[in-house]
């Protein structure tokens, strides 16, 4: 189909970009397996003596592992709270036939599009008053500011995909709206719900600004705690690389797991 020249052009574009995309990640990976001396070897080498010391040290670092556990707990909590808020609302909006629908949907998008910084100051002051500063509960709450609208938006299209005839049949059999929601729509939208939940998990796992400002030590997440390796005495690149790999591994696996939905859902409103 393609002429030879066009084919060559396509290959050049594709491989040039993939080099740009992968080179920094490959370097992170290679650094994570290097000893301190090899990291600053002159000339630099891609593969030196392979050592697991960096991983051993990071995994043995109680502060970092504490933050890693925090990431898991905060992300899971954010998923649960977001889903409790988003599932009924998304189902309701999907079925709603009313002029208010556009207003509500616009509002969901606007909330999601607001810059994160606008929430930081009021939440910071409120958390200080309420004793929520540096707590996982507080971080879960402020993460939900972004993840609940995101989940609503994604879930609406999955509920749109549940055939109406089946719901009608449930109504004829005397089911209430709530029963139809829980027994018909929820099970049928299950794959979409799972991918929305994973997306919320990824978002919360990666979140930085709120974790930076609303936590000090007790509830610090891994995405912020990794900066502890950039000390005043110099940056411990080996540990940063190993910790970076450990942080990105779970979300990379999740993303590949839901790759079928990932592009479609995380675009949040972009329809292909």
């Amino acid at each position: 189909m393609l002429r030879t020249r066009e084919k060559i052009f396509c290959y050049v574009v594709a491989f040039a970009f993939i080099l740009f995309l992968l080179a920094p990640i490959v370097w992170l990976l290679s650094t994570s397996f290097k000893g301190q001396l090899d990291i600053f070897a002159d000339p630099p080498r891609l593969i030196a003596t392979v050592t697991l010391d960096n991983y051993r040290e990071v995994l043995g670092d109680r502060d970092f592992m504490h933050s890693f556990l925090n990431s898991i707990l905060v992300s899971s909590g954010t998923v649960i709270l977001s889903m409790i808020l988003a599932l009924p609302a998304a189902y309701g909006l999907s079925r709603l036939r009313s002029k208010t629908k556009v207003g509500l949907l616009s509002w969901v998008l606007l909330v999601r599009a607001a810059p994160g910084m606008i929430y930081v100051i009021p939440y910071f002051m409120a958390f200080n008053e309420l004793g929520l500063m540096d707590t996982k509960a507080g971080l879960i709450l402020i993460n939900t500011v972004f993840t609940a609208p995101l989940a609503i938006w994604i879930l609406i299209s999955f509920f749109d995909g549940v055939p109406g005839e089946i719901e009608e049949a449930a109504f004829v059999d005397g089911a209430t709206r709530w029963q139809t929601f829980t027994r018909v729509a929820l099970p049928m939208a299950a794959p979409g719900i799972a991918s929305a939940a994973i997306l919320v998990f990824i978002f919360s796992w990666n979140e930085f600004l709120f974790a930076l400002t609303m936590t000090r030590f007790e509830s610090k997440t891994a995405a912020v705690a990794i900066l502890n390796y950039m000390g005043y005495e110099g940056t411990e690149w080996g540990k940063i690389a190993a910790a970076g790999i450990l942080i990105l591994l779970p979300v990379a696996i999740f993303a590949i797991g839901i790759r079928k939905y990932f592009v479609q859902t995380s675009a949040g409103g972009v329809k292909g």
């Binding site: 993939i18 995309l21 992968l22 080179a23 920094p24 990640i25 490959v26 370097w27 992170l28 650094t31 990291i39 600053f40 002159d42 630099p44 990824i202 796992w205 990666n206 930085f208 995405a223 912020v224 990794i226 900066l227 690149w237 940063i240 690389a241 970076g244 942080i247 990105l248 979300v251 990379a252 999740f254 993303a255 590949i256 790759r259 990932f262 995380s266």
Partner: peptide
């Protein structure tokens, strides 16, 4: 592979690039 940068935590992406350009030790 194209999925990767979109899911890497942004702070880690910053570190990935910071490491990549460290004079002498970077990629």
């Amino acid at each position: 592979a194209f999925l990767l940068p979109a899911v890497i935590p942004p702070a880690v992406s910053g570190l990935v690039w910071k490491l990549f350009i460290v004079p002498g030790a970077g990629g």
